[in-house]
């Protein structure tokens, strides 16, 4: 049929529409970029929305300091290629400045410290809209979040008091100090992201593909041996063939055993998987039934 758009082209068009709407209506938008696959797809969609002009906003990385070196190398190269300005909100700097206190012990994570660092970054640069790569299929609190998600002057989300969102008419009105989190890929699933990466031939960091890595097992997850984690009694490192389904903080992102070395193999693996990506690989979401909702209320991504 002549006038059909595939699901990927429809999702793409919806996302581009959202990027343009924000650029037109806000004064100081910013794109959150972690170097993970979702933010990489977001960057490509933003490039498409404004081509042949460059992105009319900067990119912000909330940097825990516990990064995969491969991802940092990729981040700098990719942003340079896109010709966009990078703003780094550093958790290390927040710790050094005494704005947040580092957790201690072998299970210490900088995950929660990201929220304060993010909110400080927003305030410092007076951003009024932040593009995030959250998807509704990821997590059940996210399944109920709007595309334009209002944040009060404390950066908080109130799930029971969300603005109705109809058709493709988005209400982005805010007062001084408030902001909107914007999720252009709300309606994409993990599989859509991989299919799009394949269709568009988008480069992603090497940690997404199968490789040999020194890991250890904790709480049923394979964590990478790195300077950022301390082994506890009984934890023994071993070398395994793994890849990452999500890319976050090295101290709490688990690897999965996998021989998938190509996008095709990853798509086959994701299609057959019986476990969600966050369930498989994110210690930060395992804390409780409402872990994500609680962090989001505080101002998390």
């Amino acid at each position: 049929m002549a006038y059909d758009l595939s699901h990927l082209r429809q999702l793409e068009a919806e996302s581009i529409h959202i990027f343009r709407e924000v650029a037109a209506e806000f004064e100081r938008p910013c794109l959150l970029f972690s170097g993970g696959k979702d933010s990489i797809v977001m960057l490509r969609l933003a490039e498409k929305a404004f081509w042949p002009a460059r992105l009319p906003f900067p990119v912000m990385h909330v940097d825990t300091g516990h990064n995969f070196p491969e991802v940092m190398e990729f981040r700098d190269r990719r942003l340079d290629e896109a010709g966009v300005r990078l703003v780094v909100a550093s958790v290390q700097k927040a710790i050094d400045d005494g704005r947040v206190v580092e957790e201690t012990g072998p299970r210490a994570s900088r995950n929660r410290l990201q929220t304060r660092t993010l909110l400080d970054g927003i305030e410092e640069h007076r951003f009024d809209a932040l593009f995030g790569g959250a998807r509704r299929d990821e997590e059940k609190a996210r399944a109920k979040e709007r595309v334009f998600s209002f944040r009060d002057e404390f950066g908080q989300w109130d799930p029971k008091n969300q603005r109705p969102e109809l058709w493709s008419l988005y209400n982005g009105r805010t007062r001084q100090g408030e902001h909107i989190r914007v999720f252009p890929i709300s309606n994409w699933t993990e599989l859509d992201i991989w299919q799009y990466i394949r269709a568009e031939d988008i480069e992603i960091p090497s940690v997404y593909f199968s490789h040999r890595r020194e890991v250890f097992e904790r709480d049923g997850m394979l964590l990478s041996v790195s300077p950022f984690v301390t082994l506890m009694n009984g934890e023994t490192p071993f070398v395994e063939t793994v890849r990452y389904r999500t890319v976050g903080d090295m101290s709490c992102t688990g690897a999965v055993e996998s021989a998938a070395g190509t996008i095709e193999a990853i798509i086959a693996e994701v299609s057959a998987s019986r476990i969600t990506e966050r369930g498989a690989t994110r210690a930060d979401d395992r804390v409780s039934e409402a872990a994500m909702e609680d962090r989001k209320k505080e101002g998390y991504f």
Partner: peptide
């Protein structure tokens, strides 16, 4: 419970 995502709903 699969679709009722918010704490208050559950």
């Amino acid at each position: 419970l699969l679709t009722d995502g918010l704490r208050a709903e559950r």
